[in-house]
């Protein structure tokens, strides 16, 4: 067992190393560099070279890689070229907003996806099941950015129900309650978009998992003992399906983060997505890699 765990850890470390190395190299192979966006062409070549030196970009790529890898292992991700702060600080300050958005969206996905998927499994083959399959497939296939644009146009401009951007309003009545109700109001639309765009997957996975366990012997035995169907379905069947749904959670999280990246730009949400977008545009290598 110990050997298995160690082997898995070593494999994970190797995979992480390969991914980090690949990202580092791909970034450097892409055309352009951070100097190109200095706003005035009057800045002489010597000054540009000096800045390049201060950022360590004058070193051979291998040296830069070793330095970066050493720093990363020591927990130092370098200094952001565009924010002029340690990349760790930039990530740390942006992470809560993304967690807030992603966490709330995941909660919404679970609150909608688990019951709807379970219902679909219970009534497999019915008209409702077919309807949910069409709905879940449509939502699954809908790009998050498109849904975000449509939601913005409809619910912030056509019918201004939700605020169009940011964490909170500029104009606020004093007090903690208005502050937090305003924040929740701002959170609602991006969460709805991110949540709904992912709920289709949850419906599909939950339906498949519950359907699989519904025919298992122990559930048949429960029914034979006279346990009500509702209890069999919502307690025992759903519980039996949970391990496979937990695996789904594993690959939902990256999807949530990538969806949040685009939405954060659309909604000017100050999280990691917006930071990454800015870092990519300015070739802020330390921040992109962080």
């Amino acid at each position: 067992m110990l050997r298995y765990v160690l082997r898995r850890i070593a494999a994970s470390a190797l995979l992480l190393f390969l991914v980090l190395t690949g990202v580092f190299l791909l970034l450097r192979l892409a055309p352009g560099d951070p100097m190109a966006l200095l706003e005035t062409p009057r800045i002489p070549a010597e000054a540009r070279e000096e800045l390049r030196r201060s950022w360590g970009l004058d070193q051979p790529l291998a040296t830069q890689y070793v330095r970066w890898l050493g720093g990363t292992l020591a927990g130092d991700w370098g200094t952001s070229f565009s924010h002029h702060r340690p990349a760790t600080d930039v990530v740390r300050s942006a992470l809560p907003a993304t967690l807030w958005l992603g966490g709330a969206a995941l909660l919404l996905q679970l609150l909608l996806g688990l019951p709807l998927g379970t219902l679909a499994a219970r009534r497999a083959g019915s008209l409702g099941d077919h309807g949910l399959r069409v709905l879940s497939l449509s939502l699954y296939a809908t790009p998050t950015f498109w849904l975000g644009i449509v939601a913005l146009l409809c619910f912030t401009y056509r019918w201004p129900i939700f605020p169009p951007s940011h964490l909170q309003s500029v104009f606020l009545a004093p007090g903690a309650i208005p502050l937090w109700s305003d924040r929740l109001h701002h959170l609602a639309l991006p969460v709805l978009v991110l949540g709904i765009s992912g709920v289709g997957g949850w419906i599909r996975y939950t339906r498949a998992s519950v359907l699989e366990v519904l025919s298992q012997d122990h559930l048949v035995a429960l029914r034979a003992r006279g346990i009500p169907e509702r209890r069999v379905l919502w307690i025992h069947a759903l519980r039996s399906a949970l391990p496979s749904l937990l695996q789904v959670l594993g690959f939902t999280l990256p999807l949530l983060l990538s969806g949040a990246l685009i939405l954060e730009v659309l909604f000017s949400w100050p999280g990691l997505g917006q930071v990454t977008y800015g870092a990519l545009l300015s070739r802020d290598y330390p921040l992109i890699l962080a």
Partner: peptide
Amino acid sequence: RVLPDESARFRQFLS
């Protein structure tokens, strides 16, 4: 206010 998206800037100006 930071509004990275050009169309968002314009829409918020209009509104």
